[in-house]
């Protein structure tokens, strides 16, 4: 494993060092808010000590990033493939328009997690949030799977306006009750065995990363949120 001391270096220099490295495994020590780490990276495995800045793993295309702490805003922006694992919490707009790959967050996510998430052919993006998510979770979601586990949370583990503009994909909420303000184009129901089967491998993988066992997820049911139409706005217009 190659260790790069990051503390006194800018993001451009760090990304160049990551690209130039012969090692596949790279440890970034002392990261102090440098942005764009791993942008567009298609291979290699980054481990980050310290706090990465905004847009960590933007356009990520197959690489693996493990943050041993918290991440900030726009993690995995427009990510296409790969994996981002965050041991702590992350800021706003995580996984904006992600089309593939996985983002696992052990703690909480800020506003607009999974906004514009898409799915396409074999690409099925997945985001799992261990704690709670802020408002606008899955806004404009067009595909993919968002799971909020609400571990250690009392009450509903998402903020307001969950699924606003959603027109594809699924949100799984582990919660005793649904958010009170779900928009009209979202249909919610309690998960059936087949729904839980579909996410069992994801939860198993997530649990492996964070040392969670199946019994840790007991005690609360899962709800499934899906759009009730793929075309939520089609009656809005009149040709002129």
């Amino acid at each position: 494993m190659l260790t790069i001391q990051a503390s006194s270096r800018g993001y451009r220099e760090l990304n160049e060092a990551i690209t130039a490295a012969q090692d596949q495994d790279i440890l970034l020590e002392g990261v102090l808010g440098q942005r764009f780490l791993g942008a567009g990276l298609s291979e290699k495995s980054l481990t980050i000590h310290g706090i990465p800045g905004n847009a960590l793993g933007a356009y990520l295309d197959g690489a693996r990033i493990h943050v041993c702490g918290n991440a900030q805003d726009a993690t995995g922006d427009t990510m296409n493939d790969g994996q981002i694992i965050i041991d702590g919490s992350c800021g706003d707009a995580a996984g904006y328009a992600m089309r593939g790959g996985r983002i696992y967050i052990r703690g909480n996510a800020g506003y607009r997690a999974g906004i514009h998430m898409k799915a396409y052919q074999e690409k099925l993006p997945v985001m799992v949030i261990g704690g709670r998510a802020g408002s606008f979770l899955g806004e404009y979601q067009a595909g993919g799977i968002i799971i909020v586990l609400g571990l250690g949370e009392e009450g509903v583990p998402v903020g307001n306006f969950c699924g606003t503009g959603m027109h594809g994909g699924r949100i799984y909420l582990r919660t005793a009750s649904l958010p009170a303000d779900l928009p009209s184009q979202v249909a919610a129901r309690q998960a059936e065995p087949a729904d839980l089967e579909a996410i069992a491998p994801i939860l198993e993988d997530y649990g492996r990363h964070f040392g969670l066992a199946a019994q840790d997820l007991e005690g609360k049911p899962f709800y499934v949120l899906e759009p009730n139409t793929q075309n939520p706005y089609h009656q809005l217009y009149t040709p002129n």
Binding site: R99, A142, Q230
Partner: peptide
């Protein structure tokens, strides 16, 4: 890179 029949919404 979106499924057939799905609205393409650019807010």
């Amino acid at each position: 890179m979106i499924p057939e029949g799905s609205d393409a919404i650019s807010p």
